[in-house]
Nucleic acid binder design. Structure first.
Lengths: 215, 215
DNA sequence: TGTACATCAGTGAACGCGCGTTCACTGATGTAC
DNA sequence: TGTACATCAGTGAACGCGCGTTCACTGATGTAC
């Protein structure tokens, strides 16, 4: 499983950073890589600064130069996972012709599943069981709607704005079910609930993608 | 939130149990109640025998009279959650007339959501992020198919057995999408991903139930 | 180009804490005669 | 009904372990003159 840990402290990287700042970002990235491996092996609740320090051959207090606390590190991991997925979804939505919404949304759906299967622990960290005792920062909500936006605009474009029906705006409803139906398949697959069952999850998923766009 | 911890050591309970055995089952139940409260507050990874002992006003080693280890307790919790849900689903399926499948499946769908909202931590323990480093016992798979069975027979009855289409048997496919679509809504709601969004999850769910049975 | 100084990465000891689990034991409770 | 014995729930001390975090410190590195 590939763990790509890019640094995204965009503001800093824009101007020419001094060698100390460059080194700093490099170490931060290395810490996050080890953190993801740890989450992959023992789950998010087991994320431990001391264990990361040991793996890096460094003393534990040294890490406090880079992250204010364990929860601070966890926050960075979650936000970077959100950013990563948001970029993947946006790229998938942008890569298709703007004429019709269906191929754009198909592309988005495939990108989501690919990302989830490549990064199962990131997907579960974002959309699985919430980490107990941890409150996501407000920025998470912003990034969450950034992921949702291409889907919503896709359906809004495809449908006449027919005012609100009883209960739920139709474009919002279709965007929501797009999301819930695909999440239903992805999350069960990623959590291992399809192992040993006599069917191919990819086929099931493709069927759901087709169906959710057909109606 | 109600935590009902029934003892289900059926074999023992059938014959008349001595007073010691009765007491033993009572304590086991009490331990499990405290365990669920603990999972609700700090997650499954934080499940701790010492903490339970402290809450019960008992010494920690005393618990080893009732559970062989921490993982043993966790296994009992998971199996009892599976059993509980299986009974709820079976009851919902049996409560309707056997004539047509649709009302039976609607009833099953509502029972599933009700159970999940009443027991969010149980639902997440069964179908959310897997507990790291913990392997579910084989019996879990058995109970899992017991939950799935009423759905599958519902769709099998409703459809002519038309042989296998390319990819996926039609009844299995519809039973699977029944499950994935409802899980998609339930899991996101239970994990708190709908909080603050401008719609009613119950309406969204009802719509999905209707749609999954309509086609 | 050379030197003095400020910055900052990293160290090692220490804090209080909680964990699962073992062990030898005490004392109450149920049971067989 | 009374007594002796076996069973077993529960105790307290101890084991080795890992955790987050703080503190005063050392020593290397970059920078300003």
């Amino acid at each position: 499983m590939l763990v790509s840990t890019r640094e995204e402290n965009v503001v800093v990287q824009e101007t020419t950073a001094g060698p100390r700042e460059r080194y700093r970002q490099q170490v931060r990235a290395e810490v996050q890589t080890h953190a993801w491996h740890q989450i992959a092996e023992a789950g998010a609740s087991a994320l431990s600064l001391k264990a990361i320090a040991k793996q890096m051959g460094i003393s534990a207090p040294a890490l406090y130069r880079y992250f204010a606390s364990r929860d601070d590190l966890l926050t960075e991991l979650i936000l970077s996972a959100y950013r990563d997925l948001a970029e993947v979804v946006e790229a998938a939505a942008a890569g298709q012709s703007a004429d019709s919404a269906a191929p754009r949304l198909t592309s988005v759906a495939q990108a989501m599943r690919d990302w989830a299967l490549t990064n199962p622990h990131r997907y579960l960290l974002l959309f699985g069981t919430p980490v107990p005792g941890y409150a996501a920062p407000p920025e998470a909500t912003t990034l969450s709607s950034r992921i949702f936006a291409p889907v919503l605009t896709g359906f809004s474009a495809a449908m006449p704005a027919s005012g609100s029906l009883p209960g739920l705006d139709p474009a919002l409803r279709r965007a929501l079910t797009f999301w819930t139906r695909l999440h239903g398949v992805i999350s069960l697959e990623v959590a291992g609930h399809f192992t040993g069952m006599p069917f191919d999850p990819a086929v099931l998923y493709a069927g759901e993608v087709e169906a959710v766009l057909a109606d």
